[in-house]
């Protein structure tokens, strides 16, 4: 029997669907749903997590993330400009910093900031307490990643933009600030969003600084509950809490990109 092209395509697609459905069905039927629900979905435990998981844990996770992102963005922009500088020592310093901090685990940096700085400067405190330590500790690592992203963004702005700005009499600095960098940021919105989402999850490292009931964030909160109730339900809820942050974030960024598409 010889099949026509469209018949062959339809048949092939049908087979793929069939295999897919078979796999899902097998998992659904074979899994022991009662035991699974007992371990991961105990309604009474879910209820006991509210409202603290929202009012404290989720709120803190967002605060830590935004703090680290803001610090990383400002510092990363400075590093990016240093990497592109005509002054060689600036380039060396920035390159060395980026290579070093991209290579170190965020956990280690956070630990060094949280415990190293108080030892080095016993008279002073990091402003903002735990929040400040986390913003700086995670921000130092984030800055190294963001610096490379922003540098690429600046280099992606056509050379003619800087030239046009300079021929209008703008200084290099003014041209950078008003013409090149605004365009560079529009270009790097997608990778910076990635960084923000990664930071959201990295904020779970806050536990190394010893968080209290007031400064606890989602993951630590879930793990404490896990130990407390000897049940994995809190982990599932904690995971969903992260999605509550990241999914709307992706939507917002998509909107932002559409809005800027016109002005490109």
């Amino acid at each position: 029997m010889k099949l026509r092209r469209r018949q062959r395509e339809r048949l092939s697609l049908g087979l793929q669907y069939l295999v897919f459905i078979a796999i899902i069905a097998t998992v659904l039927v074979a899994a022991d749903w009662d035991r699974l629900a007992d371990a991961f979905f105990r309604v009474d435990i879910i209820k006991s997590m509210f409202p603290t998981i929202i009012t404290v844990a989720l709120r803190n996770t967002i605060l830590y993330t935004l703090g680290a992102f803001a610090f990383g963005l400002v510092f990363g922009t400075i590093l990016a400009l240093m990497r592109l500088s005509r002054v060689a020592p600036y380039r060396w310093v920035a390159t060395a910093y980026i290579e070093l901090f991209r290579g170190l685990p965020a956990l280690l940096v956070l630990f060094l900031v949280g415990y190293g700085i108080p030892i080095a400067f016993p008279e002073r405190e990091i402003p903002g307490g735990v929040f400040g330590s986390i913003a700086i500790g995670l921000g130092l690592t984030a800055a190294a990643y963001m610096a490379e992203t922003i540098r690429a963004g600046i280099q992606a702005v056509p050379k003619g933009q800087m030239e046009a700005a300079r021929t209008l009499g703008m200084s290099h600095f003014t041209a950078m600030r008003t013409i090149v960098i605004p365009q560079a940021f529009r270009i790097v919105i997608p990778p910076l969003t990635n960084e923000l989402i990664l930071l959201t999850k990295d904020s779970s490292l806050a536990y190394v600084l010893g968080v209290t009931a007031q400064t606890i964030e989602i993951t630590k909160f879930g793990r404490d509950m896990l130990n407390d109730r000897v049940n994995a339900t809190p982990l599932l809820v904690a995971g969903l809490a992260y999605l509550v942050i990241t999914l709307p974030l992706s939507q917002v960024v998509r909107r932002l990109e559409l809005r800027y598409a016109k002005a490109r």
């Binding site: 056509p158 933009q161 030239e163 046009a164 013409i179 800027y260």
Partner: peptide
């Protein structure tokens, strides 16, 4: 240079308008 360039207008082959404005 910035002061002198104020007195000189430059028009490029590729326009070089600022696309974000």
């Amino acid at each position: 240079i910035d002061a002198v360039r104020r007195g000189i207008g430059m028009v490029f082959q590729s326009f070089n308008l600022f696309p974000h404005l």
